[in-house]
Amino acid sequence: MTTVVATAQTEGSGGHTAVAARTRQVTKAYGSGETRVVALDNVDVDIARGRFTAIMGPSGSGKSTLMHCLAGLDSVTEGRIWIGESEITKLNDRKLTRLRRDKIGFIFQAFNLLPTLSAAENITLPMDIAGRKPDREWLDRVVETVGLGGRLKHRPNQLSGGQQQRVAVARALAARPEIIFGDEPTGNLDSRAGAEILGFLRRSVDELGQTIVMVTHDPVAASYADRVLFLADGRIVDEMHNPTAEAVLERMLRFTASETAQPGHPSTSQFGSGRTA
């Protein structure tokens, strides 16, 4: 397997325009005193535009927290976050909501859809809420891409789990958000259905230039990404470009080992490691 060499976290020449989202010195702590938990610890991340980024790490390492903060769903304790050029850590709830509506798409692990709305209505929901007319042509293309043609009139409870996730993907794509966040979007699916969803995501990056950030536990899922960020104990401890499933798996296994060896702080050691096994 080829070795992936880490590049600098900010891509030099591209400047800010090449960055869809970034965090600076972001710390997120829950509770206080004895029960204080630091979920994110001084995190600096840049999400490149038009790329597919995966976030991995052991359970409890802060992946979901990072994603929630990036997506403007949660507030940070310290630090700043930008989506495109706008700093979201300064926005109030109203502006944040509008930002999520217009610039961000979501795919959750489960319960992505409103049970009372049909698949089609779920897909156009963000635009309906905004009172925007969906772009028909684009919509058709998205629906076609995820292969939902015959199922648009169905309610979520009439769809399989995989189909429901496809609707969620379609919804995330339909509004052409600047960035799509997914928290284990394939976590509830079998490998075939999962592969389909990941395929769509990959194609939307390649063909449509979409920016996607995805949290996952699955090395195979991560291998669809252009770049993998590894999180441990609330810190970015490693990253990998053009990952393969094997490389990711191997990296993850080392986590488990180091974690058991050194509870508390994982080895932040070999930055830019990722040697082949």
Partner: peptide, 16 residues
């Protein structure tokens, strides 16, 4: 609760 969370996440405002 979950539905409301979902629609809030995908951009429905408090007022809405």
């Amino acid at each position: 609760t979950r539905e409301i969370g979902l629609i809030r996440a995908i951009g429905m405002s408090r007022l809405q």
